[in-house]
Nucleic acid binder design. Structure first.
Lengths: 202, 202
DNA sequence: GACAACATACCAACTGGTCGGTTTATTACT
DNA sequence: AGTAATAAACCGACCAGTTGGTATGTTGTC
């Protein structure tokens, strides 16, 4: 009983395909023609749902990447009062996922990819991306603050500084896997990150 | 007394302009047409000196970025036996440079930019870039090994792990400045990196 | 029938790259 | 030293293909 015209469905198909293409080739390296072909839709459909290539990119951030980041990296630390333990668990899980399917991580972090490519070139991208990063850091800073109060974190550390450093370092580590196109140095760097987290204990 | 035809000069002008354009717009985002225009040469000259766009990119890595990285990040740590002190000095100097001229750092690390964009797409880029990263990590690992022997570094740390983590974290931090297009979080993250370095003392 | 949801043909602008030709520098020979 | 031959350096028009984007038409749904 699926109707021939399913606008929401078409839109989602375009969005998802655009996300995958952008994750693989970057935004500038992805072409509208290829996206519509892979999505199995026509250019008319795409430009009916999105004003242009930039707007499509914006929608990919707002409607896919934002939720992804929240679900995988922010929510797990929400209301944490032992961020050292919870972050260790999180990144070890990520490393395990990377082992099972290296292809995803070897294309880099979708958010940071776009950040590095587009932030200096387009303000629309920059603000949308920075919104995610800011929420990310704020969540971790809160967790470390809670940790200090709960006695799970060395009280002399600055929650904001640790949060900023952790996010930067984590994105750098993921970038390492992409750069090398294998998990060797990535795995090593994760070890270093865990060592760092442990150094924050009281 | 400058000869009309100065091949070495022309080549360098193209190379330097290509470096700047790539640093600003990425490799795929830079166009041959714009490069020749900005360099004040013709397309014939460019394709006389370089086989194609990729070869030009390779030359930018081999002849500009490689030396840059060596001079600014590898040589200062060569034969260091107190890497904690020397690395702190190095990154504080970099932060000072960034304050004086934010525009350069806000375009990201030229090496890592190319790594993130091109490593998954082209093996020629990947190997050339990875060569620099490998040399970089090896130098720092050696310095930490020396530091352990000299008693300036906690002997329980793994030199290779620390080196890998430091390089990843540093590139992540530089990426933060590019992503945010300002130095606020960058500065914070550098604080975190320094705190981390101090935690490696005996 | 009205309007959203598509489809298709098409466009100017630009992409990396080529090619025939000209200019300059270097070499070889007298 | 003078000059002819050769090679390197450079020029700019041109190419086929692709880019993001549009205009117009058709189809389906309420």
């Amino acid at each position: 009983m699926t109707p021939v015209k399913a606008p929401e469905d078409t839109r989602n198909k375009i969005l998802q395909t655009a996300f995958e293409e952008i994750h693989k080739n970057g935004f500038q390296g992805s072409s509208i023609n290829q996206i519509v072909e892979k999505a199995g839709v026509t250019k008319g459909a795409l430009f009916h749902h999105f004003k242009g290539k930039n707007e499509l990119g914006y929608a990919v951030i707002d409607e896919i990447i934002y939720g992804m980041g929240k679900e995988e990296f922010i929510n797990p630390l929400k209301e944490s009062s032992d961020p050292i333990q919870d972050l260790k668990q999180l990144i070890l899980k990520k490393r395990e996922q990377a082992r099972e399917d290296p292809s995803f991580i070897c294309n880099g972090c979708p958010l940071n990819n776009l950040a590095q490519e587009m932030s200096p070139l387009d303000e629309g991208f920059r603000t949308r991306i920075e919104k995610v990063f800011t929420a990310w850091r704020a969540c971790y800073a809160k967790a470390f603050k809670n940790g200090i109060e709960a006695g799970t974190v060395d009280p002399t550390v600055s929650p904001e500084t640790v949060a900023a450093f952790f996010v930067s370092a984590f994105e750098g580590i993921v970038g390492t896997a992409k750069s090398a196109q294998n998990l060797e140095v990535f795995t090593r760097s994760v070890d270093g990150l865990i060592y760092y987290l442990d150094s924050l204990k009281p």
